[in-house]
Amino acid sequence: MDDAFQAASLTASQPTSQPTSQPAPQPAAHAVADATACFDDPLPAQSIHFAVPPMRTLTWRVNAPATLRVQVAQVWVTRARSPYDHWLQPGETLRLERGERIWLSTETALPARVSVTSAWQPPFAGVRRGMERLAAWLALLTLRRSREA
C-alpha cells in the first residue's frame, strides 16, 4: 500500500503539461479485502437432518457444540438441565452444548424437519482426545509419585 501511495503522489507532483504514458496507479483496496476474506471462511461443518414424527418424542445427546435448526413445523425442545422448554418455529435456531441431552416433539399432524449442525471432527477425534486425557492423567500421577518419593 505504501508503494502504491508513493507512486500516486509522484505522478500527482509531475507537471500536467507532460502527457503520461500510463494512468496513475490506484491503491487496490479490493485486494486487501480479498486477502482478509480468506480468513473468514467457515470451518467444515457436518449436518444431520431428520424428521420428528407427529405426536412422538425423540431424544438426542449432543456429542459436540451444535446448532439445532427447525425447517418445517413447530418443535418443542426440552433440555435435561434447564427448567425452561422452547417452542421453535420454522427457521429458528437453538445453540446446544456438548454433552447436553434434549427431547424433541411436535404436536402438528405432519412430521417436523430438523437439522443439527456442528463443526466437523476428523475420524477418531474422540479417541485422540481420550488418549490425550489418559496421557495427561498418567503424567500427573507420575509427578505426584515422584514428589512423594
Rank of each mutant, 00 (worst) to 15 (best):
A35S: 15
T20S: 08
R79K: 14
D41M: 09
G126P: 07
R61G: 06
T36R: 10
V127W: 11
A8S: 11
M55Y: 12
P65I: 01
E132V: 04
R56L: 00
L96D: 05
M55D: 14
Q121I: 05
T78R: 11
P111T: 02
W137Q: 14
G91H: 04
P111G: 02
P90H: 03
E132D: 15
E100R: 06
R128T: 13
T20K: 10
A73D: 12
F39H: 13
H86V: 05
Q89K: 06
L94M: 08
R144H: 05
Q6G: 02
E148A: 14
V70Q: 04
S82M: 04
L134H: 14
A51W: 06
A7R: 15
V52L: 04
R144Y: 03
L138G: 00
Q26I: 08
R144A: 11
A4N: 06
H49C: 08
T36H: 05
R144S: 09
Q71P: 01
A125L: 00
R101F: 01
A51V: 01
I48S: 11
S13Y: 04
R81A: 04
P27L: 07
A136Q: 10
R81D: 11
A149P: 15
A45R: 13
A135V: 08
P54D: 02
P53Q: 03
R98E: 15
V52D: 03
L134K: 10
A109L: 11
L134S: 07
W60Y: 07
E92G: 03
R61L: 03
Q46Y: 04
R113S: 09
Q71L: 13
H49R: 08
E100G: 04
L138I: 05
L96I: 02
S105D: 13
L141F: 05
E97S: 09
L134R: 08
R144V: 06
V62Q: 14
T117N: 04
A109G: 05
R79A: 06
I48H: 10
V72C: 00
T78Q: 12
A109K: 12
Q14S: 05
T108N: 09
A7M: 15
A119I: 09
T11N: 15
Q22T: 11
A136H: 11
L94K: 03
S115H: 00
C38L: 12
F5I: 15
L140G: 14
S13E: 09
L140Y: 13
E148R: 13
T108W: 06
V72G: 02
R79W: 04
D85K: 05
Q18T: 01
A64F: 10
G126L: 05
S118P: 00
A109N: 02
